[in-house]
Design a protein around this nucleic acid. Structure first.
Lengths: 106, 106
DNA sequence: CCGTATCCGATGTGATACTG
DNA sequence: CAGTATCACATCGGATACGG
């Protein structure tokens, strides 16, 4: 590889907000997002409480925050049933589903 | 899926230190590791300074720390040449190389 | 050139109690 | 049940100056 090519390659990661790698990382780095995607991928729908049980060491606050972020990014879907006691179910969106192969092959 | 199966599936992520997903995440979550792997994968060897230039907004301290962690995990190799001025080159180990397909397919 | 030392702020994560 | 409120804390990331 010539020096010119090298320079061009190294430039690709410089563009901060336009760098696709950085975009992905900003959404999935952190302790919980990938684990949650795995859990959701195993069932059609999963309730808040089920996720909590599957991850014994996550606090409700952190779980709630993480789910919100994933929802905002369009990766998971949140469905509220107007029942008492309340029922809320989380599931992967199409986009979320499309991500799973890259996780599961690891 | 039956309730029994569901319960078994959700259990898989409970085992904290034995959970393979958590092991991976603990090594690669964070802002920089994946970017650095990408950069290293593009050349046989890359110098500290080159990496810094490729990532304009990383400080030398953080770059150094991240490289150390990756080296400790056996993912990258650090070769010091006893020259003045000093020359140090980083490259992927076999293990590190084996990780790239999962990154590049994304 | 390749880092380390120092210090600091931001962010992520956690425990617990509480509410509709 | 499904969260929110509050507070606390550790880790991560960043700026800058300096050293071998």
């Amino acid at each position: 590889m010539s020096k010119i090519e090298l320079k061009e390659n190294l430039k690709k990661y410089s563009n901060l907000d336009e760098c696709p790698i950085r975009n992905i990382i900003s959404r999935f780095s952190g302790k919980w997002p990938v684990i949650i995607l795995c859990i959701l991928s195993e069932n059609e729908c999963t309730r808040f409480n089920q996720i909590q049980k599957a991850i014994p060491d996550i606090s409700p606050k952190v779980l709630s925050d993480t789910l919100k972020n994933l929802e905002t990014d369009g990766i998971i879907k949140r469905i509220v049933y107007g029942e008492v006691p309340p029922r809320v179910e989380y599931s992967l969106t199409k986009l979320g589903l499309s991500l799973m192969p890259y996780i599961n092959n690891s």
